[in-house]
Computed example of a mutant assay.
Amino acid sequence: MNLALWIGAGLLAAVALFGGLVKLVVPTQKLAAAKGAGWVADLGGGFVKTLGGLEVLAALGLILPAVVDTAPVMVPVTAVCWVLLMIGAMATHGRRREFPLVAVNLFYLAVAVFVAWGRFGPESFTG
């Protein structure tokens, strides 16, 4: 199960890092024009850049604390934060009737719940 939890955390970290960097690097106007990213125009550039920064931090928080063995409890805490982020993403995409994106967010939410459960519980780094 430890391997499955590492794979789950790695998948979430990759998604968070890619998504965060895109939000930080791509100009807001260009990002808003992309398919499925109409929400960007609704929320504004500052919010999108902040969200991108938080996603990059989430990518780091899902991997680094365990790798360097400094505050490894931050891995499941970050996974719980990712769950909350996915709930918000699902609500946003649901309001915009972007149901395929809701399904993608639901998958990421399920992986984050698995990582949080596993790292708080049976495969805790502290136990």
Rank of each mutant, 00 (worst) to 15 (best):
A34N: 01
A4C: 12
R96I: 02
L101W: 07
V67S: 04
A13M: 09
V77E: 08
V80T: 07
L85N: 10
N2A: 15
V68L: 11
G20I: 03
M90K: 03
G8S: 12
N105Y: 06
M1D: 15
A112N: 03
N2G: 15
T126E: 15
L62G: 04
L31M: 07
A16F: 09
E98H: 05
L3N: 15
A34C: 00
A4I: 15
V56K: 06
V111P: 07
A66S: 09
T70L: 12
V80E: 08
V73W: 13
Q29C: 00
L17G: 10
V104Y: 14
L5S: 10
N105D: 13
L21A: 13
V111H: 08
A79M: 03
F125Q: 14
L54H: 02
A9L: 09
G118K: 06
L12V: 06
W6I: 09
V77I: 13
W39K: 07
M86P: 04
L106C: 12
E123R: 15
V68Y: 10
L51C: 01
S124G: 15
S124M: 14
A41R: 05
L106N: 05
A58T: 08
V113E: 10
P100G: 07
M86W: 03
W82C: 12
V56P: 03
T50S: 08
G45D: 09
V115E: 03
A59V: 01
Q29V: 07
A9F: 05
G20Y: 08
N105I: 05
L60A: 12
G88F: 03
G46V: 00
K23V: 00
V56H: 04
V15A: 11
A34S: 04
L21F: 12
W39A: 03
L85G: 12
L17Q: 11
A41V: 00
V111W: 06
A89C: 08
T28S: 12
W82A: 12
Y108I: 10
R95I: 00
L24M: 11
A41Y: 02
L62S: 04
D69M: 09
E98K: 01
V104T: 11
W117L: 15
D42N: 06
A58G: 10
D42R: 04
G38W: 04
W39L: 01
G19A: 08
V25N: 08
K35Y: 01
A32F: 01
F114K: 10
W39I: 00
V75E: 01
L5I: 10
V102A: 06
V102H: 08
K23L: 08
L60G: 12
P76N: 06
P65Y: 04
F18L: 13
P100F: 04
L24N: 09
T50H: 04
L21Y: 09
I7D: 13
M90Y: 05
E98Y: 05
H93Y: 11
V68G: 07
L43R: 11
F107W: 13
A91H: 11
M90T: 02
L43H: 12
T126K: 14
A4Q: 14
